[in-house]
């Protein structure tokens, strides 16, 4: 039920940002389309912890702030490989294990790896991620540790603080 409420608020906010109108007509259309979307989501059975993680919004925002910093660093590293004086690259495939227990945590971790330039998640089998990295030294054994820890703390239920 909480998840449905979160989805309701998110859809309503989305509609309001897109239309920017407050009038009886637009309000009515908004209610109809939000209800229709909720019904379709219920039929698809996606209103659950993974499909509607809005109860985690504060943690996710904090994580996003940290991730943006990582993205900036990774951007600089990849730019150096594209235009730098040394054109040597050293691609590698590495196996990374996610310590997250929930699907949401694993998805967050895998997507964070893909989002940072220089590393791409190729395959996810259970908690094991196959990662392709542009430079081997940037994908060592402990280079994903911090991201793993933070994404697990952001998304996993048992370490929740107050939800």
């Amino acid at each position: 039920m909480t998840y449905a409420l979160g989805l309701l608020v998110a859809l309503g906010g989305f509609w309001f940002v897109l239309s920017g109108q407050i009038s009886p007509f637009f309000g009515g259309v908004a209610v109809i389309s939000v209800i229709a979307t909720m019904w379709l989501s219920a039929r698809l059975k996606v209103i659950d912890r993974d499909g509607s993680p809005y109860h985690r919004a504060p943690q996710l925002l904090l994580y996003l702030g940290w991730l943006l910093g990582e993205i900036v660093k990774a951007n600089v590293a990849v730019i150096a490989r594209v235009v730098g004086p040394s054109h040597a690259i050293d691609p590698a495939m590495v196996e990374v294990k996610s310590s997250a227990t929930s699907n949401l945590g694993r998805a967050l971790f895998a997507n964070s790896i893909t989002l940072t330039p220089g590393t791409v998640t190729v395959d996810v089998i259970g908690a094991n991620l196959k990662v392709h990295a542009l430079v081997r030294e940037n994908a060592g054994a402990d280079s994903f540790d911090e991201m793993d820890r933070k994404s697990a703390r952001t998304a996993d239920p048992h370490r929740a603080s107050g939800s």
Partner: peptide, 19 residues
């Protein structure tokens, strides 16, 4: 354009998508 295979090109393309 310069990177040698699909996977490395994905890294370069994600420069545009993120940064």
């Amino acid at each position: 354009l310069r990177f040698p295979d699909v996977y490395t090109r994905i890294h370069a393309a994600s420069l545009t998508d993120t940064g």
